[in-house]
């Protein structure tokens, strides 16, 4: 004799609410966040979360309330379902949410006292960071490239190893 309330919960927990331009709309706030209106109802500030940030960055985005228990409003199947203005807005928000500079050029890599010191040119500018040399998991293979995690847990992405020059490859070879 299962309780009705519990049955309902199961339904709620497992069902996916799909968000489409028909049931949700987004709007930028002057402060730099986005607000959502779902089925005519104001939801306040929301966060857009990538459910597969590495493999499918622009698919299956979870839209959640920015505050409180951060409940999920629903899931956007593909960002391209929305009109251009909304796509731009969402992309801008995602840029703010996910910060993972892409390494474009390796300037120097040095090992000293148990850390590897990197100086690299990224799409966000020049940056120096240190990764722990010994520990596993500071360099993770990802698709055609690698993701490097520094000692502060910041992550940097090297999208494609094959575009590096032979000289650069030689510099980092040992650390991959």
């Amino acid at each position: 004799m299962m309780n009705d309330k519990l049955d309902l919960n199961v339904e709620q927990i497992t069902s996916i609410i799909r968000l489409t331009p028909e049931n949700i709309s987004f709007e930028a706030t002057p402060g730099g966040f986005i607000k959502a209106k779902f089925e005519g109802q104001d939801k306040g500030l929301v966060n857009i979360i990538r459910t597969f940030p590495l493999s499918d960055a622009d698919r299956l985005l979870s839209v959640r309330l920015a505050d409180g228990k951060q409940e999920e409003i629903g899931i956007i199947d593909a960002i391209s379902d929305f009109d251009d203005a909304t796509v731009q807005l969402l992309q801008k928000h995602l840029k703010l949410r996910y910060f993972r500079p892409k390494i474009q050029k390796i300037i120097s890599v040095k090992e000293q006292f148990g850390y590897t010191y990197w100086t690299v040119e990224t799409d966000m500018g020049l940056v120096k960071f240190a990764s722990s040399s010994g520990s596993a998991g500071s360099v993770i293979r990802h698709k055609k490239g690698v993701i490097i995690k520094d000692s502060n847990n910041n992550r940097y992405e090297l999208e494609d190893l094959s575009v590096l020059s032979a000289k650069e490859l030689k510099k980092i070879d040992l650390y991959l």
């Binding site: 840029k95 703010l96 910060f99 500079p101 990224t122 966000m124 500018g125 020049l126 940056v127």
Partner: peptide
């Protein structure tokens, strides 16, 4: 180390 745009500075 970054501006609001995400550029290193």
């Amino acid at each position: 180390d970054i501006t609001v745009d995400g550029a290193y500075s």
